Amino acid sequence: MSATAETSPAPSAAVITEPLPDLQLQLLIQLLDEDPRSSLPLTLTHSGGILHGDVIGHEQWKAEWARSLRQVEGEGANLLAEFPETVDQGVRELRAEEDASGAARLPRWIHLRDVTLVSGAMTPVSLPLWRGRLSDVSGWALGRPQ
């Protein structure tokens, strides 16, 4: 045995990794967020298949989502009508914490209206609104399939 003991390297801190969203798509969404009336036709690929619709900004999506929640009937309908604003309040609080830490605020979510989801051999599914995580989008193109 040698006079110097071998030491193993100190354990490094755990590194959490997640897929990175496409920067150009994030910037496009950020641009759409500046004008609540704007939209663009977009086709996305993700693990569930192909999705196409009109990409819209968060505020426009939230307004349309709130409108659809107000159409729900039943005892919990009043609570649902206030839900989008409750969620946004939580998001504002998280963003305030991010601002304090100096973290960037690029969009993490994408919102589409008048959506068609095509998945394998299944019949295409039409949806009025869709929200997805940008890091789950593996490809995109302006326009819809013809």
Rank of each mutant, 00 (worst) to 15 (best):
Met1Lys: 06
Thr4Pro: 14
Thr4Asp: 15
Ala5Tyr: 13
Ser12Pro: 03
Ala13Tyr: 03
Val15His: 04
Val15Leu: 12
Pro19Phe: 04
Pro19Gly: 09
Leu20Phe: 08
Gln24His: 11
Leu31Pro: 01
Leu31Gly: 07
Asp35Phe: 05
Pro41Ile: 02
Pro41Ala: 07
Pro41His: 00
Thr43Ala: 05
Thr43Arg: 04
Leu44Lys: 08
Ser47His: 09
His52Ser: 12
Ile56Trp: 01
His58Met: 10
Glu59Pro: 01
Gln60Phe: 04
Ala66Phe: 02
Arg67Gly: 05
Ser68Trp: 12
Leu69Met: 10
Gly74Val: 02
Ala77Val: 00
Asn78Lys: 09
Asn78His: 13
Asn78Met: 10
Leu79Ala: 15
Leu79Ser: 11
Leu79Tyr: 08
Ala81Asn: 05
Ala81Met: 03
Phe83Tyr: 14
Pro84Ser: 02
Thr86Leu: 14
Asp88Asn: 08
Asp88Val: 05
Gly90Ala: 12
Gly90His: 10
Val91Tyr: 08
Leu94Asn: 10
Ser101Pro: 00
Gly102Phe: 01
Ala104Trp: 06
Ala104Lys: 10
Arg108Lys: 12
Arg108Met: 04
Leu112Cys: 02
Arg113Gln: 09
Val115Cys: 03
Thr116Arg: 05
Leu117Met: 12
Val118Ala: 13
Val118Pro: 01
Ser119Gln: 15
Gly120Trp: 05
Ala121Gln: 08
Ala121Thr: 12
Met122Phe: 13
Pro124Met: 02
Gly132Gln: 02
Gly132Ala: 07
Leu134Ser: 00
Ser135Gln: 13
Ser138Lys: 12
Gly139Glu: 12
Leu142Gly: 06
Leu142Cys: 09
Gly143Met: 00
Gly143Val: 00
Pro145Tyr: 02
Gln146Met: 10
